[in-house]
Amino acid sequence: MDVFMKGLSKAKEGVVAAAEKTKQGVAEAAGKTKEGVLYVGSKTKEGVVHGVATVAEKTKEQVTNVGGAVVTGVTAVAQKTVEGAGSIAAATGFVKKDQLGKNEEGAPQEGILEDMPVDPDNEAYEMPSEEGYQDYEPEA
């Protein structure tokens, strides 16, 4: 019985440690998101679009440190934060509304985080759909 109880105690310690790591990862992701939003706020009209992409990228980098179902929630929060940063930029006159959601080359930025393969159960990952990809044929 002692062996059984000791095993359960060790398992509990492992769960607590994993929860603490997840909590730490979420806190880091939130900190990076805040950094990115402050970065966007300090940019001029020309830099705002690039700044919004930076927020998304920093958040995406930190999301990889967070495991399990938390990833889905962090990704949703990050996307809403990026959308909010863009709205703030438009409201303050840093950028025109028609410039939001495009990178410096004018290509749409939507789907940055949505296409990231995420499995809350950590069982399997699927690649994003290939609808947006084109076949590449090298020139002879």
Rank of each mutant, 00 (worst) to 15 (best):
M1C: 00
M1E: 00
V3A: 05
V3E: 01
F4P: 00
M5Q: 02
M5G: 02
M5E: 01
M5R: 02
M5Y: 02
S9H: 04
S9I: 11
S9C: 04
S9Y: 03
S9V: 02
S9F: 14
K10M: 02
K10Q: 10
A11I: 14
K12D: 00
K12Q: 01
K12A: 06
K12S: 06
E13D: 01
E13T: 10
G14F: 08
V15S: 00
V15Q: 00
V15A: 01
V16H: 11
V16F: 15
V16P: 00
V16E: 03
A17C: 09
A17D: 05
A18K: 03
A19C: 06
A19L: 15
E20R: 03
K21H: 08
K21G: 00
K21Y: 12
T22W: 05
K23R: 08
K23V: 10
K23E: 00
Q24C: 15
Q24T: 07
G25Y: 14
G25Q: 15
V26Q: 00
A27G: 06
A27S: 14
E28S: 04
A30F: 03
G31N: 15
E35W: 15
G36W: 14
V37A: 12
L38T: 09
L38M: 11
Y39G: 01
V40Q: 00
V40L: 13
V40T: 02
V40I: 01
V40F: 13
G41W: 03
G41L: 07
G41N: 00
S42P: 00
S42N: 14
K43I: 12
K43G: 01
K43A: 09
T44I: 04
T44G: 09
K45L: 13
E46R: 00
E46P: 03
E46A: 15
G47K: 10
G47T: 14
G47M: 12
V48M: 09
V48K: 01
V49E: 07
H50R: 12
H50P: 04
H50G: 09
G51F: 01
V52R: 02
A53W: 03
V55R: 02
V55G: 02
V55N: 01
A56R: 14
E57S: 03
E57K: 14
K58E: 04
K58P: 00
K58Y: 13
T59Y: 00
T59W: 15
E61P: 04
E61N: 03
E61G: 02
E61L: 03
Q62L: 08
V63I: 09
V63W: 11
T64D: 04
V66T: 04
V66N: 02
V66Q: 02
G67S: 10
G67D: 02
G67E: 02
A69S: 07
A69G: 08
A69R: 13
V70E: 06
T72K: 07
T72S: 01
T72M: 13
T72I: 15
G73Y: 01
V74Y: 03
V74P: 02
V74L: 11
V74C: 11
T75R: 06
T75G: 10
T75Y: 14
T75E: 09
A76Y: 13
V77Q: 02
A78T: 05
A78V: 06
Q79P: 02
Q79E: 06
Q79F: 06
K80P: 02
T81I: 12
T81D: 03
T81W: 14
T81Q: 03
V82N: 05
V82K: 14
V82W: 01
E83F: 14
E83K: 14
E83C: 01
G84Y: 07
A85P: 05
G86S: 11
G86V: 02
G86P: 02
G86I: 05
S87E: 01
S87A: 13
S87R: 10
I88N: 00
I88T: 05
I88H: 04
A89Q: 03
A89M: 15
A89F: 06
A89N: 03
A89P: 07
A91D: 07
A91T: 01
T92G: 09
G93F: 08
F94D: 05
K96I: 14
K96A: 13
K96Y: 12
D98G: 09
D98N: 09
Q99E: 12
L100D: 10
L100A: 08
L100W: 09
N103F: 11
N103D: 11
E105R: 07
G106I: 06
G106N: 08
A107C: 09
A107R: 11
A107I: 08
P108H: 05
Q109N: 10
Q109I: 10
E110G: 04
G111E: 07
L113V: 03
E114K: 06
D115R: 11
D115A: 09
D115P: 13
D115S: 11
M116W: 09
P117I: 10
P117L: 07
P117H: 04
V118R: 03
V118W: 13
D119M: 04
P120H: 05
D121E: 05
D121T: 06
D121F: 05
N122S: 13
N122L: 07
E123D: 02
E123V: 12
A124Y: 10
A124T: 14
Y125T: 13
Y125K: 07
Y125Q: 07
Y125P: 15
E126W: 14
E126I: 04
M127Q: 06
M127K: 12
P128N: 14
P128Y: 12
S129E: 15
E130V: 03
E130Q: 12
E131H: 13
E131Y: 12
E131R: 03
G132P: 07
G132E: 07
Y133P: 08
Y133D: 11
Q134S: 13
D135W: 05
D135P: 13
Y136D: 02
E137W: 06
E137K: 03
P138Q: 13
P138W: 14
P138H: 05
E139K: 09
A140Y: 09
A140K: 15
A140H: 05
A140S: 13
A140F: 15
